[in-house]
Each structure stands twice: as C-alpha cells, then as structure tokens.
Amino acid sequence: MAAPVPTPTMTPTAFVPAGAAAKIDVRQMHFYYGPRRVLDNVTLQIRPHEVTALIGPSGCGKSTFLRSINRMNDIVPGARVEGSICIDGQDIYAPSVDPVDLRRRVGMVFQKSNPFPKSIFENVAYGLRINRLARSREELGGRVESSLKSAALWDEVKDRLHTSALALSGGQQQRLCIARALAVEPDILLMDEPASALDPIATQRIEELVYQLKARYTIVIVTHNMQQAARVSDVTAFFWLGKLIECDRTNKIFTAPSQKLTEDYVTGRFG
C-alpha cells in the first residue's frame, strides 16, 4: 500500500486528551447486542471543531460506536450500553435525556444516501418541519437555501428545488443528506462511511465539504479508506475487535503509531 499522505493542515503537536474541553467524552463504554459484546471498554475524548476518523476492519465496532453517539442503536432490539457518553458534560444515556432531542443536536449521514422520496426542497425542510424550527415560509425557504449552500449543493439544484431528490446523482444525493442534517443546526455531525458508495470525484467533493464544515461542527467520520482518514481528519481512532487500540493525532497514527497492531493495519498488513 502506498505511503499515507499527510495533509499539510495537520498540526504536528503531540496528542493531549481533551479532558474537560471534550465535546464528546466517552468513558468505559461497553456495548452489547443481546449477549454479544460488540464494544469493550472504550474510553475516548473528542474535541470540538475537529474531525475524528474512526478506522478499523469490518466488524470492529466503529459504526456501532458512531451510532451510540446519537443513540441510533436505541431502535435496534437488544442493544444495550454500559459506561457513559457525555456531550458537553451531559450524559446522553441519562433517563432525563430524550433521544429525539439528542438526535436533533447530533446529526447523522449514512453510508448509503437515503433521501426521502420527496422534492429536494422538502428533503431539507423535513427536519425543520418536524422540529418546528421555522416560523414562516420565508424562514423555511431561507434555512433550506443556507443548508444547501453549506453542503455545496445550492448552485447545482437552485433551479430545480421542487423536482424529485431521487433524480440527483449519488454524490448529489449524499450532499443533500448532509444539507438535510445541517438544516436542523446540530453541533455534531456523525458520518458513517459517507463516501464509500461514491466515485472518486464525488468522494473528493464530500471530503472538501468535511474540511469546510469542521469550522462550525464537530465531526466524527467512520471510514474504510485509510487515505481518506489521513486526508480529512485531525485525530484518528483505530478500533480492532471491539476495542479501541489507539487514538492519536492523525499524522502520528499514520507515521509513528505507538501500537504494533495499528502500524500493521495502517501499513496494510491486514484488514
């Protein structure tokens, strides 16, 4: 495998756990599907306005980890979490937390783009409507427009906002799903292999977008593609068989990881 290309924007500072400054603070977290333990004692801090990439072979638990941050696993029967996950200091699994409110604050983009079978406009407006976030038609229109602009899709769709979202290309659909997630103004954006089904050019556009969005959002991205992790992320966490093996600045993970397992994985010896 080719040597990983460090992005010029990475700061070569040593990794310091975020501690109290963490946006997402995960401590001693275990995750079970029924009797099966999928994540084992994961402790990880994610800092605001950074892109954290989760890498690891299939079935290592990285998607499960991502989906516990917005409690998307709640809808899976038999799923259970132990330990704590705090966002801004608030334990999101506390009984007082409503997962519906949580998911509005923690947006998510899926592996396969999943626009609703509605118009482009209605797709972006959906979250605004169900959360009653727009008080007037003008405000709704304005927020749809600004979301589409944030997702770098506006120029391509502004003349056909009311045509079907399903007529868009795969890459456009994925950016529409990003726009839809941004419309409800989350602080955190979770992305589950958002470019795995896209061609290289569409992938590049998504990566550029991730890079732009991190100024405003905290982004956690699961990826199969190590070059992608190296290109877009500030911090990389390597999962293996349900354990967090190592988490560090991305350039450190790809150039001088402290664990042998990480080195073997990022150099393509397995996985």
């Binding site: 917005n70 998307m72 809808i75 519906v100 409110d101 998911r103 509005r104 947006g107 998510m108 899926f110 396969k112 999943n114 626009p115 609703f116 959906y126 979250g127 169900i130 959360n131 799903c177 839809r180 997630a181 409800v184």
Partner: peptide, 12 residues
C-alpha cells in the same frame, strides 16, 4: 435507512 434517516433528524 428511510426510518433511520427520519430518526436521525429528530423524528419521533
């Protein structure tokens, strides 16, 4: 994915 898409946007 359709249901999850709705849930992810804060749907009940």
């Amino acid at each position: 994915a359709q249901r999850e898409g709705a849930y992810a946007l804060g749907a009940t």
